[in-house]
Nucleic acid binder design. Structure first.
Lengths: 256, 256
DNA sequence: AATGGTCGTTGCAGGCATTGCAACTCACCT
DNA sequence: AGGTGAGTTGCAATGCCTGCAACGACCATT
């Protein structure tokens, strides 16, 4: 709606790919160098971009700090965290918490597996929306019309042979997930990794978040992981209850 | 430099404090509601803000995702991480990695203590710049003039009785830190928490990051923590070496 | 040392995007 | 019903943004 702001904001994802100099930014925006310069300067004043010693620009510290605050403001995260930790202590595997927002599913919390560590925190990273167990739960709860529109717009990358191949298959899977009230991802994203997930609901019954337990099948088979389903569901239900105002932890907060 | 962009970006820190409705945003920006609306719409299109069900705005998912990418692009983080993990395995305490950028010091990585956990990841959060051990190391390496200007601008909050009280004391402490080549924070931020920190240097000798080990003194006394100093310095030096191109891990990257 | 090229920066004038106003809708409350 | 408050939209005026061109700094080449 606002051309100037639109252009300025377009710079950010561009810099997320890696540092770029003034000319590159101007080219990719399709504007004159001087225009790009002034936009970058404004972004710089707000700490959104940083100018490194070779004069190239990259994303700045304030952006990271803002995102941090944004996540801390999500009260579902705060409520859920101790439950996630407890579940991790019980089963030892990686536990994730995710939310849906405008065609994206985002991990907002994670408790690391107690088995040998790998990738560092991917908190904040958008998840593979067509295959992740948490994504299925979050999308399955969308209004029918919105869901159909979204399913059409999505890409269906074939990470593995078990990845969801296309929109009809996806919609069918979501149907199933909606009915059974939980979801799995059995090697749909990475061949050797399985997940079991359960939904977290608000007071009105709408799914506000989803949580999952993930483990490579060198540690536990898919069947063994499924044995954890009751525990995962209990944990999710406990979070739902607390989030909806039942069994208030310290101070009660009812009704949205 | 650009009024429109400036206003739009000013909305973000405002929303970081918590959700706000259109009127509140317009008031705090000092603009007409319609103006605020159009700015918010543009931010919304880019996913930087999200409109929750009660129509109020809060920070959006794309912002979080961008920040995530920004951190992954910091190659010092990638290089340092395994070293941090190794140090944590040796001593069991919380290990931090921090960088300086434009008057802010930011934690960009963290390995949790193996002792009972508390606060969840504060990665991305600006640190208490006047007392944190890592901040002392990062600031001590700034050019004299820049440092003096910065020291004047800073606030010196008295978190505890041992906090750095004012600019002269801070400059003196930095002097000491610069000479000894390492730093501590003994209860300057939280009464019961001590830290030991060491600098990580690039090929040109400039401090590019700093790392620290922190522990509450109910677990180890300050003296015991200081015994870890050689280990911390060795780790920092190892990271420095790898970052500068010496002992390349896989593929060598020399000079700057 | 001189020269040509590249890149970032700045002053300027013209034009268009942005702004604030006012009117409108919609929901909610009295 | 009437009234209040919030969000939204069309419109006209103006002030902000844009692109140009010239300048300066730096680097590489001759």
């Amino acid at each position: 709606m606002s051309q100037t702001v639109d252009r300025a904001l377009s710079i950010l994802p561009l810099l997320a790919e890696g540092p770029a100099d003034l000319g590159q930014v101007a080219d990719r925006l399709g504007v004159h160098k001087s225009t790009a310069l002034r936009l970058l300067r404004t972004l710089h004043e707000h700490g959104m971009v940083y100018r490194q010693s070779d004069q190239r620009y990259r994303l700045g510290a304030r952006l990271i700090a803002l995102a941090q605050e944004a996540m801390e403001n999500l009260d579902i995260r705060e409520i859920a965290h101790p439950h996630l930790v407890r579940l991790n202590e019980l089963c030892g595997h990686t536990v994730h918490l995710a939310v849906y927002e405008e065609a994206e599913v985002l991990y907002i919390d994670k408790v690391e597996s107690r088995y040998p560590v790998r990738m560092y925190s991917r908190i904040g990273k958008p998840v593979a929306i067509t295959v992740a167990a948490v994504a299925k739960l979050l999308l399955a709860d969308l209004p029918e019309a919105e869901l159909r529109a979204l399913a059409d717009k999505l890409d269906y990358p074939l990470y593995t042979a078990r990845s969801t191949p296309n929109a009809p298959a996806f919609l069918k899977e979501l149907e199933r997930v909606r009915e059974q009230g939980w979801a799995t991802d059995l090697g749909g994203h990475e061949e050797s990794i399985n997940c079991v997930a359960a939904p977290i609901r608000g007071a009105d019954g709408k799914v506000v978040a989803a949580m999952s337990v993930s483990a490579p099948n060198v540690v536990v088979t898919a069947e063994e992981l499924l044995n954890l389903l009751p525990q995962v569901r209990r944990t999710a239900d406990a979070i739902s209850g607390e989030y909806s105002g039942r069994t208030p932890p310290k101070d009660p907060k009812d009704t949205v």
